[in-house]
């Protein structure tokens, strides 16, 4: 069972190191194999594999890729990614609102609906655009806030646990 787990891990690791120099990759694989067999002999294979993380994450550590050193960083990096995506979305809203006059945040007092998009209401319609002059500026402001928060989170994630980030 131990040998199977070691073989499977090494096969995945070899695939993850495929883009690395051939001799360097073989060096890492041989040393990892030696380490895992020694830990298996001590009855500590599961604990060791858990500490090493996925073969992909372990391979990334040899390239000095930030974010791969600690699994604890992943939620922070995910949150950072979401904030950056939201920042892009708000930037998009700002640009479209600036370029397309009929784009905006529309409300309809009769139906109670609120819509972000294009609309060309007739003069008798109950639809009204809100924040017409400020939507682009507000979106840009929110975009900058999201981008800033995302950047701070990413920087903190990369700064922590740096012993495993040999870059």
């Amino acid at each position: 069972m131990s040998n199977q787990a070691i073989t499977a891990y090494l096969e995945d690791l070899a695939r993850s190191l495929a883009d690395m120099d051939r001799y360097e990759a073989r060096d890492i694989l041989t040393e990892t194999e030696s380490h895992l067999h020694a830990r298996a002999g001590q009855g500590r294979l599961d604990e060791t594999l858990s500490d090493m993380g996925t073969p992909q994450a372990y391979a990334a550590r040899f390239r000095g890729e930030p974010g791969a050193a600690s699994p604890a960083r992943l939620p922070v990096l995910a949150a950072s990614g979401v904030l950056v995506l939201l920042a892009f979305f708000m930037a998009g809203v700002a640009v479209i609102d600036f370029l397309v006059p009929s784009f905006g945040l529309w409300t309809n007092s009769q139906t109670g609906s609120v819509v972000l998009g294009l609309a060309s209401p007739s003069p008798t319609s109950a639809a009204r655009e809100v924040w017409s002059d400020w939507l682009a500026m507000a979106s840009l402001g929110v975009c900058l806030v999201f981008a800033g928060l995302g950047g701070v989170l990413a920087r903190n994630a990369f700064a922590s646990g740096d012993a495993g980030s040999p870059a």
Binding site: I28, E31, T32, H35, R39, T48, D51, M52, G53, Y58, R61, F62, G64, A69, G161, D162, A163, G164, S165, P166, A167
Partner: peptide, 15 residues
């Protein structure tokens, strides 16, 4: 506190 373990020692040694 050094943060060195089975998963981090070899990347550091390689560097």
């Amino acid at each position: 506190g050094l943060g060195l373990s089975d998963g981090t020692i070899y990347p550091l040694l390689k560097r």
